[in-house]
Amino acid sequence: MARHDVESEVTGSVWKVLLEVGAKVATGDVILILESMKMEIPVEAPVDGTVAEILVAPEDQVEEDQVVAVVES
């Protein structure tokens, strides 16, 4: 089992968390959606696997490169 950090590409806030820990994901599946400068920024699974951790909740502030979730493959 390899752990893959999922990072935010922008500074912003968490708008919606779409998946729960344990959810199966394919590469490119949207795990959560951030909001920055009135734009929705989807955060996608980097690999096929399972969501192991969701580290943020709606309305949390996030920084660029912050780890927001972990996917295990």
Partner: peptide, 12 residues
């Protein structure tokens, strides 16, 4: 706009 011209991601 404050955004990346290729990825179109907003830039702060």
């Amino acid at each position: 706009y404050a955004e990346d011209p290729e990825s179109f991601l907003p830039s702060t």
